[in-house]
Write a protein that binds this DNA or RNA. Structure first.
Lengths: 267, 267
DNA sequence: AGGCACAATGCCGTTCAATGGAAAGCAACT
DNA sequence: AGTTGCTTTCCATTGAACGGCATTGTGCCT
């Protein structure tokens, strides 16, 4: 008899800490990301930290509702029904709905990228990106996250965030992405002040291709900055002076669409 | 003692049928729709059929993860984190990503609406809609559902669905939306055959404004029809003959982007 | 064609997370 | 000061959830 094993093994034992079921179901959804849009049961189990048999049972429920789908190869993916419900989020699709026509106008003029982002925690979340056929390589995808301190839209969102949050971000060591160059917090502070003064951010990035991003804030009915709009163009033949007014005008159009009475003055 | 009440009332009694927790959590998410993007706890409780105390507890977990958000007025809405995860659905954002540039081209030419839809059950789900500023009134919104039998994209999706499913749809009484005119199943059968022959659907609607929709199928790498693309223009100065090739070309472009070797021939 | 490794699924006795009525707290009317 | 409606906390009860194990399915190497 081998009873040297101290670990008690009982059929049906619940997990030590007893995690709520809802959390585990959400962990299953969270196991998917941009590089893993399809997962087998085993992958799902490993990535979520849930035993396979439990993962299968929970996934079954999610499958039935439509939060997950399953292909012929038995791999799981996020379901369309979840996307349908998620499209009701005010800060996502709601905002997007209002912004899209204005973004289309901007795209037609610049023929490059037009971005719309909101702040989510310490990052920016790209809500929408319109990209013309011949546009330069894009670093970020809609639904993906971007750093606040090294993108045009991020700088705008940071500049107009409450000062407590700004200090929290400034307090940590910041590295420019994707160049991996450290950012001086004093310089960033000056940049943010200028963005607030001008109501406009101009951001340059060297890699992968040299680009310029010109970004402006979008206000809601209460005057709070809820999103940032920007165009991204190749640095070569860019005319930031000309792009500024165009972006600002489009951003004001979106703000008006959200119920803002008038665009807050700059300065 | 009053014990005339036959219903046994015990503190902590579980619901009669004992619904799984995951289902209840999903029911909370399902309580939101296009006309109710914000809900109070009571509304959430009523619409989902879950007692307030349980609804609050479950909503708390969803809130913590980011599947729900809560405003200052204590009302709930769908959270951005859920939207972020949902953007990974292949049939939603994945498809959209490929289609967007082609849709942009079409919009620039027509200056009206460009739609992209997939089939979900017995309805079409509008994955994307680009709408120019001066476009005619739109009936459907992205993330919303459309009838298969009275929209351009719906007819395409129905025409290329497996015949078993087609019969299932044809077997039920169909009413044109939004005019409320009955659809003859024989006429619909002829229409579907023509759509399959031409690889193109032309649909006219009288209300709210007279419009013409020209729609074409989008194929995946295996040659299956996975989506439908269409333009919607005012009936007056429309030239369906000219729109057809444009829509078909754009749809083939998207199919190619999805990995289809060559567009299946029509005829 | 046999052996091996890994993935998916079915089974089932145990147990604690989930439950919802009661009651209190709160704000806005009457 | 009573009424109405919404939100939140509390807690005794119990069945839904749990996961180890067994089995089957599948692809790959020898």
């Amino acid at each position: 008899m081998t009873d040297e094993d101290t670990a008690v093994r009982v059929r049906g034992r619940r997990p030590p800490q007893g995690e709520p079921v809802v959390d585990r179901a959400l962990a299953l959804l969270g196991a998917f990301d941009a590089t893993h849009p399809y997962l087998t049961l085993s992958e799902l189990s490993r990535r979520s930290g849930i035993p396979a048999s439990s993962a299968l049972r929970l996934a079954g429920r999610l499958l039935e509702w439509g939060a997950l789908e399953r292909g012929e190869d038995a791999r799981f993916s996020i379901g369309l029904r979840l996307w349908e419900v998620a499209s009701l989020t005010p800060r996502g699709h709601g905002l997007r709905q209002v912004a899209l026509p204005f973004m289309g106008d901007l795209e037609e003029v610049t023929r490059q990228h037009v971005l719309l982002a909101v702040r989510e925690g310490e990052e920016a979340l790209l809500v929408e990106r319109l990209s013309s056929h011949g546009a330069v390589a894009a670093l970020y995808r809609p639904g993906g996250r971007m750093p606040l301190h090294s993108t045009g839209v991020g700088l705008v969102l940071l500049a107009f965030a409450d000062s407590g949050f700004q200090e929290q971000v400034l307090a940590q060591p910041l590295i420019h992405q994707p160049e991996k160059v450290p950012v001086s917090s004093a310089a960033l502070r000056r940049t943010l002040a200028e963005i607030r003064r001008e109501g406009l951010a101009t951001f340059r990035r060297g890699a992968p291709g040299p680009i310029v991003s010109v970004a402006a804030p979008v206000h809601d009915a209460q005057g709070a900055v809820v999103a940032a709009l920007s165009v991204v163009v190749p640095a070569e033949n860019a005319e930031p002076r000309l792009l500024g007014p165009a972006v600002r005008t489009a951003a004001r159009g979106i703000s008006r669409g959200l119920g803002a009475r008038r665009a807050p003055g700059a300065g």
